[in-house]
Design a protein around this nucleic acid. Structure first.
Length: 200
DNA sequence: CTTACGATCATCT
DNA sequence: GATGATCGTAAGC
């Protein structure tokens, strides 16, 4: 039992147990919830990218299981956090059924609660800048290697994703920052959002 | 053991 | 628009 009761109801595991692109689209508008100490930070997901397994050259899982990407092959609904360019920690939600690799990269969020705490973690002039990139939002919400493997369907978790009734208008484009697999339109974002990472 | 590199960002020009 | 930062992985020797 926890004295903390959350307003945000977590998404169930079946939500993630389907093709990465379908889960990616439906993650838009949902709420990323982060608890640190006695603070709650919450942010709306406004931009994502879908990654598959063997048939996706841009995916970490394209050449089979390794120690780093093993969690992508495991059961869905868990966090996959890894270091990119030696500098930034990036947050993914594992998708597909167990045994099939897949993940959705959280690329941008719109802060909605605990904004002061996020600004402490990542001082910026404009709130628009708080989570407008995959490495930015992890810094603002204190997400790092410690959060790798957390259960995103557990409302008692220090990190999870919650339901929302919003049904956003979705735009799509090619994925960002990859060298191969660019022909696939697997980046999704909330159309018109001011909080997405810039280039489209 | 060694090395090259990457699902990026901030800070230049 | 270009570049340097900075390090865990995984592949190569």
């Amino acid at each position: 039992m926890s004295s903390i009761t959350s307003f945000y109801a977590p998404l169930v595991r079946d939500f993630y147990a389907r093709p990465s692109d379908e889960a990616a689209v439906d993650l838009l508008g949902k709420i990323l919830v982060r608890r640190v100490d006695h603070d709650v930070m919450a942010a709306k997901i406004v931009e994502v990218e879908a990654y598959f397994g063997y048939d996706d050259p841009a995916s970490h899982a394209c050449r089979g299981m390794t120690r780093r990407n093993a969690i992508m092959f495991g059961p869905p609904g868990f966090a996959y956090v890894y270091l990119n360019y030696g500098v930034h920690w990036l947050l993914n939600a594992v998708t597909e059924s167990e045994g099939t690799a897949g993940a959705v990269l959280i690329r941008a969020v719109e802060a909605i609660e605990g904004i002061d705490r996020m600004l402490e973690n990542r001082p910026v002039g404009l709130v628009h800048e708080l989570g407008s990139g995959p490495g930015k939002l992890t810094k603002a919400m204190l997400i790092g290697p410690e959060e790798n493997g957390l259960d995103l369907t557990d409302g008692e978790s220090e990190l999870y994703i919650a339901h929302s009734d919003e049904e956003p208008v979705v735009g799509r484009s090619a994925r960002v920052g990859i060298s191969s697999g660019q022909e696939r339109m697997l980046r999704f974002f909330i159309n018109g959002s001011e909080f997405i990472s810039k280039k489209i």
